[in-house]
Computed example of a mutant assay.
Amino acid sequence: MTQTTLILDANDPEALKKAHALLKSGNVVAFPTETVYGLGANGLDPAAVAKIFKAKGRPGDNPLILHVSSIEHAIPLWQTTDAHIDLAILLAEHFWPGPLSLVLPAAPHIPKAVIGGLDSVAVRAPAGTLAQKLLQMCDFPVAAPSANLSGRPSPTTAAHVAKTLEGKIAAILDGGPTSIGIESTVLDLGSEVPQILRPGDISAEAIQTVIGELAPGNAGADAPSPGLRHRHYQPKDMQLSLVDEAAIAAAWQQNIAILCFEETANYLTENTGERGAPLLVLPKEARAYSARLYDALYELERSGPGQLFVEAVPQTSEWVAVQDRLLRASAS
């Protein structure tokens, strides 16, 4: 059964009030953060949280991130040592509001559905005027995964949200495109040595300048973080393959959609000719690429071919988060 999804224009002075009223009454509302659009509900209301999972078709073992306006509102959501709280406060002083989610043991009142069967919960204070204003209006944390059907690319515009969730949620707060374009860094503070569970815009190097050593290696699929246990970021009805420049060149005149760097496209156009199949180009700068990636995937999934070649990105530290998302999108 579908419902009418309200589109709330952020330029309307009443939009935030309407979004808050819907959240307060147990409804699900999509709203923009600096990273991607989140699918928000009252994070302390199990019935409201259940609506997130239903709308997304999200597996129940995939935990959610709780969103708050400040570290003061985050601390009551954890039950942990003073040392852990001090570490969280230190990181919040440097990176909040911003794209860093902190994982610590959950307080007893956090609904089981939020933590996906784990004993910890991720919390962050997002940046962005709209997200902050909305969260400051709420007297509860807002549970919010990305506002898309499970497995699809995360949305960076209200139109992306509507593409997969219109008719399934109460409202979309349209605040225009997000600025960062990929999800937050998730940092586990509960382990003996803090560990990044999911890379994002805030790098390991930036975190190390504040708290020192981080545990090496990648988190496994059973780590206490969203986005690790299931397939993600995949365009509909397209097989995404991460390939090198030589494979892009070999496919240039084939009916395969291509997403590559601008310099690659320019070189191949000059030396091989224009291509008839869908082509999108992105800049060879990590943050600019991140901001456009999901929008490019949504655009290409409408283009026709069932196969998409994405040019591999550089294997350097500033590209770690993008590389993570592309690898997950290409996983079979």
Rank of each mutant, 00 (worst) to 15 (best):
A257M: 06
P76Q: 08
I180P: 00
E301S: 13
G175F: 07
T264I: 04
M238R: 09
A223S: 15
F261G: 09
W319Y: 13
T272I: 15
W252V: 12
Q3T: 15
N218Q: 13
A221G: 00
L23H: 10
G26T: 01
P13R: 10
A55N: 04
A162H: 02
A159Y: 05
Y267N: 12
P108E: 12
V313S: 10
A223P: 03
V68K: 06
L77S: 09
A219H: 11
E311T: 04
E72F: 12
A55V: 03
P216C: 07
T129V: 13
G43I: 07
K133I: 10
A122G: 15
H67G: 10
A223M: 06
I207Y: 00
S317Y: 08
P108N: 12
V103Y: 06
A246N: 05
A74P: 09
I7L: 15
K56G: 07
S25R: 14
H73A: 15
V142D: 07
D9N: 11
E93D: 15
Q79W: 07
I258E: 00
L280Y: 03
R287D: 14
V210G: 03
A251P: 00
Q136I: 08
A41S: 09
A204Q: 01
A223R: 02
Q136L: 13
Y289S: 08
A296K: 07
E270P: 00
P126L: 08
F53V: 09
L90Y: 00
A251M: 02
G227K: 07
A30H: 01
N148P: 02
T81D: 06
E311P: 02
G217M: 04
E205P: 03
I256P: 04
I182W: 08
G117Y: 08
A125L: 10
D82S: 14
G175W: 05
G212L: 08
G227A: 09
Q239E: 15
V310S: 05
H73C: 13
L23P: 06
S290I: 03
P46I: 02
S330C: 11
P226E: 05
A107S: 14
V103W: 05
V121P: 00
P13D: 07
Q315C: 10
A143M: 04
E262C: 08
H230D: 03
T33C: 01
Y298E: 05
S184R: 06
A125H: 10
H84I: 04
L22D: 05
L282H: 11
R124W: 10
N11K: 08
P194A: 14
R328H: 12
Q208Y: 06
T81F: 04
L39G: 09
R229L: 10
C138K: 11
E285H: 12
K24R: 14
Q323T: 14
P76R: 07
E274A: 13
I52T: 07
P59C: 12
A291R: 15
P155Y: 04
D82V: 05
V36A: 01
L228P: 03
E205Q: 14
V243D: 00
A206W: 02
